[in-house]
């Protein structure tokens, strides 16, 4: 049994269909990257997993349980944590308070506020600052730290690199090995294919709502990825 199983998932907004018949398996402990161009349906996919979009119950299963109709806030308690595109930090709360809210469910696990500060030392320095004034990179670190505070079994990362300078992206990704080593399963969505391939065990490529390529980074050629990404 895989940690996360998605079967024949189709969904969209109104009459706009974003995903077509997606099948996806994410195994316990692996790091799975979903790549694809803008509008390929990557974020929609993550939103069906974290519960911001509900589906038929059986389309999404977590640890074998159908969760398609479980509301987002309950999925956090099950161990699914979503770090949204655009970060969505709580602007009027301090960094420290943001992290505390991240641990709202009081799920037990290895991540504590001190561990998160250890992972992102810059957050420790900013702990009493309002999140409103943070830079994009700082906000992203905070959003990831906040997601970890829920001690997820599955961490969903949505476009971590979006809108950040390459140097900053590099720094954020430096934290990834520690997260993965802690045993957290990671499903990340990226436009930055290079970053994604560097850390992923498996990679899937979405093209216009369809899964067109899946495999281990070592087994896939550059040409295959380019073809899948652009649909040529």
């Amino acid at each position: 049994m895989s940690l996360l199983e998605i079967d024949h998932l189709s969904c969209g907004y109104g009459h706009f269909q974003a995903l077509f018949d997606i099948d996806l398996r994410v195994e316990q402990g692996e790091t799975h990257a979903v790549i694809g161009a803008n509008g390929a349906g990557k974020s929609t996919l993550l939103r069906t997993i974290c519960g911001l979009i509900r589906t038929d119950p059986d389309r999404v299963r977590f640890e074998g349980q159908p969760i398609g109709q479980v509301p987002a806030h309950k999925r956090v308690g099950l161990g699914i944590s979503y770090v949204p595109e655009g970060r969505w930090v709580f602007p009027s709360l301090t960094v420290h308070e943001n992290l505390l809210v991240g641990g709202h469910t009081r799920r037990k696990g290895i991540w504590t506020i001190d561990k998160v500060y250890e992972l992102f030392p810059l957050l420790a320095r900013l702990r009493n600052r309002q999140a409103l004034g943070l830079s994009g990179g700082e906000q992203q670190a905070l959003a990831i730290g906040r997601g970890l505070m829920a001690n997820p079994r599955l961490l969903l990362l949505d476009e971590v690199s979006l809108g950040l300078a390459p140097v900053v992206v590099e720094k954020i990704y430096e934290a990834m090995p520690a997260i993965i080593e802690a045993g957290t399963t990671v499903l990340l969505v990226e436009q930055d294919v290079g970053q994604a391939l560097k850390i992923a065990d498996r990679v899937s490529c979405l093209l216009e709502g369809r899964l067109v390529l899946e495999g281990r980074p070592s087994e896939i050629s550059q040409e295959q990825i380019v073809a899948a990404y652009f649909g040529v």
Binding site: L52, P71, H73, K74, Y82, W88, F90, S92, L93, V101
Partner: peptide
């Protein structure tokens, strides 16, 4: 306060 700031983000923290 988190909900006041951003209701959807608060949901993602497990807040009903």
């Amino acid at each position: 306060r988190a909900t006041a700031d951003n209701q959807r983000a608060a949901q993602l923290m497990g807040i009903d």
